[in-house]
Design a protein around this nucleic acid. Structure first.
Length: 620
RNA sequence: GCCGCCGUGGCUUAGCUGGCAGAGCGGGUGACUUGUAAUCACCAGGUCGCGGGUUCAAAUCCCGCCGGCGGCUCCA
């Protein structure tokens, strides 16, 4: 809402002619002496709270300049973002009403939507001309946050035997990670003061880096990082399509004032990126929900189409997280999220899908290289839903057979009644959600999504939100943190073979063997394995060391002996320790089939760097 | 967003009670032609995060900002 306040000797206006938007009015106009004129433009985002605030402002000024008459004068020209006429009129009426309620001023209001002539005599003292811009959005945030604060959580552990115990009564002695996770969730206390291992790794391995020229939380990915990310993206996308989802693509920005999106948005306005357009303002999506829900709402869906699964890899989702919360690959403001939505006909089908997608998520993480012991399960649920679906919830614990943290609420505040997350607990004891599935009971209604049932009747479906792996960047974070745990366990850190940028490095013992090395490399390369050759003029020891610091899983040295015997001497990282390297003599074919076997059913991409190390740039 | 710590060649850093900005790695050149975690020599490379202030003099002291890390808060 925009206000222009003029303290006037008098204000005189004459009502001339209707516009299309005119409200009913039968008078001719009026003249008011010693008045505070409030030129007012009602804007799209305005609401009752904005009016309240405007009233306070106006009263404040009126008292300061000591007037007892106020004229509210609708004045569209103050804003380029006007609300529609209905809203304008109703909020102006409210404005008038609220001022009247104070019984302190004589309140006038000139008619909305008429051409009017006016004369005004501005007093010209320092307070006689003031403008005010009033926004309600900040207020919305605090309201929403207040409501959130009121939600009390009850914490339980669901044991593998199906017993539900209060968190305080659970014996954590064999569940160190779960205990850390629970403590993080409930108490949020940590006291580790150092750079997270994955941040050091992501830079040292030339995977990703901060980009100061962008906003915080937007990273750059070097060739190796891009390759890893691309493989993960392809893998998760393939898994969701295999699961039966239809891949779609939707816009990354939406009208801030779109009637359907607005409400959903207002709850979290502080975390939006806003883009100013010519006529409209836009926000950047924070997930694929908007696009897919709008698409679903326009689609013709019948019971035969259900469950209907739609998938998009959001590149990117934007969330303007608080400044102090951003860390490396763990928490970003722009991230890549596999986002699948499933439209189901009823709660039975929702539960069935929830169960299946829980299993899908376990499988996706496992194939990526994150085993069930690498993460902790949390289920968030409303008490009603739990009471009605106790057996179902308990059936979930059967899947992994490990204790689950349960957070229960007396009433539903979020859009879902049930949600699970797989949380990774890192070297600093921080927990981050990877996979998640939620049963949404609110958005089908909000977006007007429906389907036709067997009897030809329109019905409201339920919707599941599923991110089978969680954000891709966060998966990379988890893999790097996991590598750090390997170091702590006395092992050599590494990525899964299928994600290692270089899978095999060929190191010629001296310059004489470069040709042979290239020959070997091309044989391996033809088998869709990423291989490179260290042709630099360095000592063997140096080249071995460099390959090791790059976490290369297979290092093959070639020289006189290998050439003669047509074999490779391969250092296998996975089987080596910090003290001792595991060296195995094997043929090219043996090495190839070893790697092929380890990368079975995984996507492959070619090496995105020069094959020769001598011509390769360093980014960091 | 709030509080605390940090910011010196591409990287890791010394210098910080004010007085010529130093090293190692990496890079370039040359020598060496190497058998499993750093070969040797020489050379180049610095607005000391940015802006202001104090001072004869600021990487060093003060203020503001930007960025990073941690804590709080938050995580649809």
């Amino acid at each position: 809402m925009k206000l222009l306040l003029i303290h006037a000797d008098y204000m005189e206006y004459e009502v001339k002619k209707k516009t299309k938007l005119a409200e009913d009015y039968s008078g001719k106009g009026e003249r008011i002496d010693e008045v505070l004129v409030v030129f007012t433009a009602v804007e799209k985002e305005d609401n009752e709270e904005v009016v309240e605030k405007a009233v306070n402002e106006v009263v404040d000024v009126a008292r300061k300049v000591n007037v007892d008459k106020i004229l509210i004068y609708p004045y569209a020209h103050l804003s380029s973002n006007l609300a529609d006429a209905d809203k304008g009129i109703s909020l102006l009426n409210l404005f008038e009403e609220k001022l009247n309620e104070l019984n302190e001023f004589e309140v006038h209001r000139s008619p909305f939507g008429w051409y009017k002539a006016f004369k005004i005599s501005c007093k010209g003292h320092p307070l006689s001309e003031l403008s005010r811009e009033i926004k309600g959005i900040e207020e919305d945030v605090t309201q929403a946050l207040k409501a959130e604060e009121k939600v009390k959580s009850y914490w339980y552990i669901l044991k593998p035997n199906g017993e539900l115990v209060e968190v305080e009564k659970f014996d954590f002695s064999n569940y160190e990670k779960l205990e850390k996770f629970v403590r993080y969730e409930i108490a949020k206390k940590r006291a580790v003061d150092r750079i997270p291992p994955h941040v050091e790794y992501m830079r040292r391995l030339q995977i990703a880096d901060y980009e100061e020229a962008s906003d915080s939380g937007h990273l750059r990915y070097y060739p190796k990082g891009r390759l890893i990310k691309s493989l993960l993206e392809t893998f998760v996308t393939d898994k969701c399509i295999e699961y039966g989802a239809m891949e779609v693509e939707t816009p990354i920005m939406y009208d801030r004032n779109h009637p359907t999106l607005r409400k959903y948005l207002e709850r979290f306005p502080a975390r939006q990126y806003i883009i100013k357009g010519d006529k409209r303002d836009f926000f950047l999506r924070f997930a694929a929900c908007f696009g897919q829900f709008l698409m679903s709402s326009d689609a013709t869906i019948t019971y035969k189409n259900l469950p209907l699964k739609m998938y998009e890899l959001t590149k990117y989702s934007f969330r303007k997280e608080q400044r102090g919360e951003l860390v490396g690959l763990r928490r970003l403001r722009a991230f890549t999220m596999p986002d699948m939505h499933t439209i189901v006909k009823d709660m039975e089908q929702a539960k069935q899908e929830f169960f299946n997608q829980y299993k899908l998520s376990v499988e996706v993480l496992k194939e990526i290289g994150l085993e069930p012991e690498d993460y902790e399960v949390a289920i968030r649920i409303t008490r009603d839903f739990y009471e009605e679906n106790r057996d179902f919830v308990h059936s979930l614990v059967e899947i992994l057979r490990k204790p689950i943290l349960i957070e229960m609420w007396d009433q539903r505040f979020f859009y879902f009644v049930l949600k699970f997350e797989f949380n990774f607990v890192d070297a600093l004891d921080k927990a981050s959600a990877l996979s998640t599935v939620q049963i949404d009971v609110e958005n089908a209604e909000r977006y007007g999504i429906d389907f036709v049932d067997e009897n030809g009747k329109k019905k409201r479906p339920l919707i599941l939100h599923c991110s089978a792996s969680g954000a891709i960047e966060r998966v990379m974070y988890a893999l790097l943190e996991k590598a750090y745990f390997m170091v702590e366990g006395g092992k050599l850190p590494m990525l899964p073979i299928w994600l290692s940028p270089t899978q095999v490095r060929i190191i010629p013992v001296s310059e004489k063997f470069i040709d042979y090395a290239l020959n070997v490399a091309s044989k391996i390369e033809n088998e869709n394995i990423r291989v490179d050759v260290d042709d630099r003029d360095e000592t063997l020891g140096k080249k071995i060391r460099d390959a090791a610091t790059e976490w290369i899983p297979y290092i093959a040295v070639v020289g006189e002996r290998e050439m003669r015997e047509n074999k490779l001497t391969v250092t296998i990282r996975k089987e080596s320790t910090q003290q001792e390297q595991k060296k195995v003599t094997m043929s090219i074919d043996e090495l190839v089939s070893l790697i092929k076997d380890e990368c079975k059913n995984k996507p492959f991409k070619k090496l995105c760097l020069p094959k020769l190390l001598s011509v390769r740039p360093t980014f960091i």
